[in-house]
Amino acid sequence: MTTAPAIELRTFTTLDHVRSDLIDVYAEVRAPLLHLPNYAVTAFGERLDRHGGEPGFSAVLAYADGHPVGYAYGNTIENGDRYWQRTTPEPAAKYTEHPTVALKEIGVSPAWRGTGTARRIHDTLLAARQEPYVTLMVNPAAGDGKVHGLYRSWGYEDIGQSQPSPASPVLTVMIRATH
C-alpha cells in the first residue's frame, strides 16, 4: 500500500498572509492556460479578491517543504445568488433553499496530480462547513473529460450549465452533499 505524500494542509479564512501563495500555485497549476483571458493571473487575482471578500470564504492550501503545491477555496452562496441565477435549468429548491458552499477553485501542481492531494484538500475544505451541499463548476472538456469524471467519482452530479462571464466557456454545474 502506498502512503500519501508528505504534505501539510493549512486552512485560511481571509486572504491575509495567503494571497501571494494562492496566486503562485494558481499560476503553476494553470500554466498551459494562462494565455487565455479568463485564466490570466490578473483575472484570477481579481476573482480571488472578490471571492475573498464574500461571506463564508475559506481556503485550504497544501504545502510540501514550505512550497504551495495545491489549493481550494470557496464561499457561502444563498438562494438568489448570481451563481444560481446563471445556472440553467434552475436548480431544484432543495439545493438553493439553504446556504450552499460554492467551491470556486481547486487545483494541484502537475507533480502532485494523481497522489490524492486534491481529494485531501477538498475534504479538508468541506470538513468544517455547515452547509448541506457543495457545488462547483467544471469545464467538461478539461483533461479530455477526466476532471469531470473525477468529480463524479467524488459524488458530484450534474445539475445544469453556466457561463459565468463572456470570456468563460460553458461550464457544467455539479453538486453533492457536503458530508
Score class of each variant (00 low, 15 high):
88 T>H: 07
149 G>M: 09
99 P>K: 06
91 P>C: 08
38 N>E: 14
108 V>C: 03
54 E>D: 02
143 G>K: 01
139 N>W: 04
123 D>Y: 06
61 L>R: 03
167 A>P: 04
179 H>T: 12
132 P>D: 05
125 L>A: 01
28 E>N: 03
103 L>P: 05
47 R>C: 09
63 Y>F: 15
8 E>D: 15
22 L>A: 10
83 Y>R: 06
123 D>P: 00
42 T>R: 12
26 Y>N: 08
5 P>E: 04
1 M>T: 13
30 R>E: 15
158 D>T: 04
5 P>T: 08
47 R>D: 15
136 L>D: 02
94 K>I: 01
77 I>T: 06
172 T>Q: 12
120 R>P: 00
25 V>D: 06
51 H>Q: 13
1 M>C: 07
100 T>C: 08
114 G>A: 05
109 S>E: 12
153 S>N: 11
167 A>F: 02
46 E>H: 11
81 D>Y: 07
13 T>H: 15
168 S>W: 14
154 W>Y: 13
134 V>F: 05
5 P>D: 12
101 V>K: 02
172 T>R: 10
159 I>W: 09
84 W>N: 04
39 Y>A: 03
7 I>Q: 08
26 Y>A: 07
155 G>V: 04
46 E>N: 13
169 P>I: 01
82 R>A: 08
153 S>Y: 09
41 V>I: 13
91 P>S: 02
122 H>W: 10
99 P>D: 07
175 I>S: 02
64 A>F: 12
50 R>N: 12
71 Y>T: 08
170 V>A: 11
173 V>G: 00
47 R>H: 02
69 V>M: 09
105 E>C: 10
173 V>M: 11
161 Q>N: 02
147 V>Q: 14
94 K>H: 11
80 G>I: 01
10 R>D: 02
